[in-house]
């Protein structure tokens, strides 16, 4: 019994420590954004790695998600004779939920694991120590550019994902239901800008669609850097860090997605 309590105590402590370290890392990375020297080359490289190189995978997932959405909803809507609303449904689901979440999950798998493995192997081959030794702060040099790149690129990828998804829906809608493209896009636009655009009223789709990927980008970058930098135990440790990154950031994305939706819906009532 005593050992069980002791173990519970240890586990709780280390968990609390880890959470603290996680947020400390995030805070430091953010603070360095505005401190000299700026590692602009690193930022550009990371934007390329996180954004441009993830484009293929995001295009594919976006296209097929939009297509399957249109297919499923056409079956459902047909029973009500409401197939002309396919565009509305596809656009709403893509922009609010599937676009950000799927882009986030894809980037977590592709980029998060890569970052964790890279920083992890830098850690075990003493390259992080070497940076420290030469008077460079590894957080500034390695974490800040990755965080910024993810924060910038994930919304961009998501918008592309949404757009391709809606195009996929269009293809299926016209191929299976014979819905005119013009009508499809009109319902899409109705969904996106339902209340019109003014300075005081920004449609909920835009807010949800852009805030979510921004947050997910931060989650992916910090999680990956966190696990990467605390890698120990040689090449095996590197593998573990990559796995943990993918699992943890995927779960975090899904959990924060729920709470973000709730908060955003409460703050910006539709």
């Amino acid at each position: 019994m005593a050992t069980l309590v002791g173990r519970l105590d240890r586990v709780t402590r280390s968990t609390v420590w880890s959470v603290q370290e996680y947020f400390l890392l995030a805070w430091q990375a953010v603070r360095f954004t505005f401190a000299r020297p700026f590692y602009a080359t690193d930022l550009a490289q990371q934007m390329d790695a996180i954004g441009v190189q993830s484009l293929g995978i995001v295009l594919l997932t976006g296209l097929f998600t939009g297509m399957v959405l249109a297919l499923q909803s056409s079956v459902q809507l047909e029973t009500f004779g409401a197939t002309q609303y396919i565009g509305r449904l596809v656009a709403g689901s893509m922009i609010r939920e599937l676009g950000p979440v799927l882009a986030g999950l894809m980037v977590a798998g592709r980029v998060g694991s890569g970052i964790a493995a890279q920083l992890g192997s830098m850690k075990v081959t003493e390259q992080i120590d070497a940076l420290n030794t030469m008077g460079t702060d590894p957080i500034k040099k390695l974490v800040t550019p990755r965080l910024l790149a993810a924060l910038i690129m994930l919304p961009v990828l998501t918008v592309i994902n949404d757009f391709v998804g809606i195009i996929g829906g269009n293809i299926i809608a016209s191929a299976y239901i014979g819905l005119p493209t013009e009508l499809y896009w009109r319902t899409v636009w109705e969904q996106i800008a339902s209340g019109g655009f003014t300075l005081r009223y920004i449609p909920n789709d835009f807010i949800q669609g852009l805030v979510k990927p921004f947050v997910f980008g931060g989650v992916i970058a910090i999680t990956a850097c966190f696990f990467g930098l605390r890698t120990t135990g040689g090449t095996e440790g590197v593998g573990q860090s990559a796995t943990r990154t993918v699992v943890t950031s995927s779960v975090l994305i899904l959990v924060t997605d729920y709470f973000l939706t709730q908060i955003l819906l409460a703050v910006f009532t539709p």
């Binding site: 830098m122 081959t125 003493e126 390259q127 120590d129 070497a130 420290n132 030794t133 030469m134 008077g135 460079t136 702060d137």
Partner: peptide, 23 residues
Amino acid sequence: SFADALKVRQRMGMVFQGAALFD
């Protein structure tokens, strides 16, 4: 402090066991 320590480290050159070159 951490920032001052970075400055002290610049007075030293370190050669690591596995060279630790940035790959």
